[in-house]
Design a protein around this nucleic acid. Sequence first.
RNA 1: GGCGCUAUCGUCUAGGGGUUAGGACGUGAGAUUCUCAAUCUUAAAACCCGGGUUCGAUUCCCGGUAGCGCUACCA
Length: 500
Amino acid sequence: MAGNDKVRVRFAPSPTGQLHIGNVRTALFNWLFARQKGGTFILRIEDTDLERSEARYEAQLMEDLKWLGLDWDEGPDVGGPYPPYRQSDKMEVYRGYAERLIKEGKAYYCFCSAEELEHEREQALKEQRQPIYSGKCRKMDPAEAERRRAAGEAAAIRLKIPERPIRFHDIVRGEVEFSHEVVSDPIIVRSSGMPIYNYVVVIDDADMKITHVIRGDDHISNTPKQVAVYEALGLPVPEFAHLSTILGPDGGRLSKRHGATSVANFREMGILPEALMNYLALLGWAPSGGDREIFPKDELIKEFSLERVTPSPAVFDTEKLHWLNRHYIKQSRPERIHQLGAGFLQRAGLLPASANGSVSGWSNSVIDLLAPYVDKLDQLPEKAKIIFDGGATTALAVPENAEIFANEKARAVAEAFAKRATTESPLTAEKFKAIMDEIKAETGAKGKDLFHPVRIMLIGSHSGPDFNRLIPVIEEGSKLELPVHVKSVKERTEEFVRAL
RNA sequence: GGCGCUAUCGUCUAGGGGUUAGGACGUGAGAUUCUCAAUCUUAAAACCCGGGUUCGAUUCCCGGUAGCGCUACCA
C-alpha cells in the first residue's frame, strides 16, 4: 500500500439486529482514523445473508451511528463514487469475478454435497485431524466439471489456497502468519449462486479502494482466506487493524446477560452520546502518557492513533461510563438536559405529555435540582420521588428515620416546624431560613439534629438536595396541574405530624 | 482437538533492561456542606508461572497456564 494514498476506511455491519457496542467501537475507531487523516469514512451494508438481514435494522443502524455523532462520506443513503454500498445490489459483480477466477484456474467448481462435507468433517474431527476440505474436486478436470454443470448439477465455487504460508501485516498486532495447511480451500460462491462473506468483503474493499481494514479480531482467522482472494485477483492487499473484543465483567464476551449491549440501550438509559463515545474510545486506546480521560470529539480526532490501540481484550466498565456521563451532563447546556430529562419524566407519567409554559419552567427546575444526582438520565423519575411522593407517611417505617425520631429533640423540632410551616404557606426559601433560625433558638437543636428531622418530614429521607432549592420546587409544583399531585410543604408537614 | 490472538492494581490503561511501576474508575479515610451528591486531599491496590539472554528482567526470547476467537455452502 503506497503510504501517501488517501486513507479510505469503512464500517461494514450486517443489518441482522441491534447495533452492538463492540461494533460501534469498531465504527468509532474507523471514523476517528478517517477524520484524523482527512480520509474517507464509508458505510457499507453487508447483507449477503438474506435470511437474517432486515431493512429496519439498516435504518436503525444509521440512526444509531448518527446519534453517536458519526457521519459517513459514502454509503447506501448518500451514494459515492464506488456504488453500490449494499452488497445485495452487487451480485453480478461478484459473479463476474468468480468466473474470472475459474477461467484462470484459481478457483474450481465443487460438487461435494453438504452432507458429504459434514461427514468428512466429523471423520476428521474423530481422527483428530484438521477438519479442512479434502480437495477432492480440486483435482477434477475442468472439462469434466463443465460437463457436469451443463448437465444441470449444482456446484459451489472454491478458491485454491496456495501451498505456502499466508502472511499479513496488522497495525495492532504486527506480522501475522498462518500455515496454508490449516486453511481449507474456502467456498466463495454457494451452490445457490450466492457469494460468501469472505469473498465479497474482499471485492467490496478492493472496489471501494479501502486502504485500511479496521475491524473486530473475530475476523483475524478469516484474514488469510481473504488475503488469498486478494492475491488470486491480483488486487493490492490493504493494511489490517484487528481490534480486541469487548468483554463482560465475568470475562466472557459482552452479551445481553450482562445488561445493555446495544447503542439503543444506552440511548434509552439516558447516556449522552459524547459520554459513550469518550468511553468507547478509551476501551482499547489510550493517549500517549495515559494520564487523560476526558476527550471530547475534537480532541479524540486530534489525539487518536491506530498504533496506540491495545491488542488485549477489555472489560466493559459501567461505573466508568457513568462517571463520564455525569461529567458530560454537568458540561452540557442546561436546555439540552432539560429537554432530555423532561422526556424521561413524561414517559414515567410524572409530567404531562405536552407541557405548557409554567409546567415546563417548573420541570426545568426539577431537572436542575436532580440531575447532579444521576449517573444516567433514566434515573430521574426515581430521584423525583422526593418531589412527587414526599414519602412523609412512609418515612417513619424506615428504621433509620424512626431512630432519629426516637430522640425527643427531633420530635420537638418537627412540631416546632409544623406549627410554623402550616401557617406560612406557601413557604419560600427566605421564610424557611427564618423559621429554622427560630427553631434553632427555641429547641437548641443545630446542625444535623435540626435539619435531619425537617428533611425527613419533607422528603422522607435525611439526605437530599439543598433546602433553598428544594422548597421552591415543592411549593411551586404543588400549585400546578400535574398527572401526579405534588404535595405542598404544608400538606407534607401535616401528614407527617399525624403519623408521628 | 488444531490454529490464532491476548496477558501491568478489582476494572480501563501509561511505562519500559536499573522507576518510590504513573494516571483514571471503583473502594477506604479526611476536609467542606444541614445532609446526600459534587468538589478537594489522602490511603490501600498490579507487572500470570517457569526457564533462557543479561551485571541486572516486569520489560527481550522460548515454554507452560489461563481467557478469548476461528475452525460453515453465517457475517
